[in-house]
């Protein structure tokens, strides 16, 4: 498998096949109106950009843990190109946005697709430049990490405001963009933890209470981000709940008053906070590979379910098409990471 992947151009072939498959699914009558594709794009966009952002943030603060998984985290870059292609497939779907009937200066089809596409491609370019600097271990790597992070923040903010929030136009929440890029980083740390376990195995057991492994460092970050996530969620929820303005609460009401969204919304809280927080509370759990893997999977699925809850009341999703899209992208994700893994770890 690995030998096959390492053959020159095999990855490109794989990407093209995947693109063709996804395009076929999106065009086929089975996909309905493209909601599934949007969900796949949003979720994997979050994860892929989040992985690179986690590596970039770690590089900027000279974190020790980042060296052990940096190569794997940076290997997901080609997927950004595929995601840009998926955005193009969404063009017909944009007509179903509520503002499509009366476009304005900001919300108009060409600019809408154009700016999101531009930032996805820009993310690809800046991530590539960052990866090159890391490979060369040059002085410029912090500068390039910072550049990527700028693009990342803008790209995730745009994804939040354009792709998701404008589905519910004129509903708006100023925190939505920030919420998205913090979640992307959270997802990036979750992936880092899984990669750290897969690549390096269980951390050596020591009696020394002060010994810190890469895994426990990543766990500390996930623990902190679970609190941060809860804080941001609460800040958003409380303001809307307390204000109780009809045009604002409708967004929450739609998602908490009918089944199955109500149950899913509650499960998001559990997957992203009420499970990770207590699970990672003790020092020993932070370096236990089983606990950390479970928590990471909980975080990733929590983000997926949350994206679903954001979209589902507003668009139609086809479960079959969704499954194909998600699995296809998951397969590619595993392939690109697997291809790069096992090399010498890049030092921070």
């Amino acid at each position: 498998m690995k030998a096959l992947l390492e053959k020159k151009g095999s990855l490109a072939v794989l990407l093209v096949i995947a693109a063709a498959l996804l395009a076929f699914v999106a065009m086929s009558p089975l996909a309905g109106r493209g909601g599934s594709l949007l969900l796949a794009l949003l979720f994997w966009g979050t994860v892929v950009e989040g992985c690179i952002a986690a590596a970039a943030a770690g590089t900027m603060v000279n974190a020790r843990w980042v060296g052990s998984v940096k190569r794997e985290l940076l290997s997901v870059r080609p997927l950004l190109l595929l995601l840009a292609f998926l955005l193009l497939l969404l063009i017909p779907f944009v007509d179903s946005y509520p503002w499509a009937g009366g476009p304005g200066l900001w919300l108009r089809k060409d600019f809408f697709i154009g700016r999101n596409l531009a930032f996805l491609l820009l993310a690809y370019v800046t991530a590539g430049r960052f990866a090159a600097a890391v490979e060369a271990n040059g002085e410029t790597k912090t500068v390039r990490a910072a550049t990527y992070l700028f693009v990342f923040v803008t790209s995730q903010t745009l994804a939040a405001f354009d792709l998701v929030m404008s589905l519910e136009y004129p509903w708006y929440s100023t925190l939505f963009g920030g919420f998205f890029f913090i979640e992307a980083l959270y997802a990036g740390f979750a992936v880092s933890a899984i990669l750290c376990i897969l690549v390096h195995g269980r951390p050596p057991r020591t009696d020394d209470p002060d010994a810190r492994s890469s895994l426990s460092d990543i766990s500390v970050l996930m623990f902190g981000f679970s609190l941060l996530w809860a804080g941001l969620f609460f800040a958003q929820y409380l303001t809307i709940w307390y204000g109780n303005i009809p045009e604002e609460v409708s967004f929450i009401a739609k998602r908490t008053s009918v089944s199955p969204f109500r149950e899913l919304a509650v499960s998001v809280l559990f997957l992203l906070f009420f499970l990770p927080f207590p699970a990672l509370l003790s020092t020993r759990a932070k370096s236990n590979p089983y606990v950390v893997t479970a928590v990471s999977l909980s975080i990733l699925s929590g983000i997926l379910v949350e994206r679903y809850v954001f979209l589902a009341p507003a668009v139609r999703l086809n479960p079959g098409a969704l499954a194909v899209d998600l699995i296809c992208l998951l397969f590619l994700f595993v392939c690109v990471v697997y291809k790069e893994s096992g090399g010498t770890p890049l030092d921070a």
Binding site: F234, Y237, L238, W241, Y242, N244
Partner: peptide
């Protein structure tokens, strides 16, 4: 302020 008696969020 039109809030329930037991308002959990606050």
């Amino acid at each position: 302020g039109g809030k329930p008696i037991v308002s959990i969020p606050p």
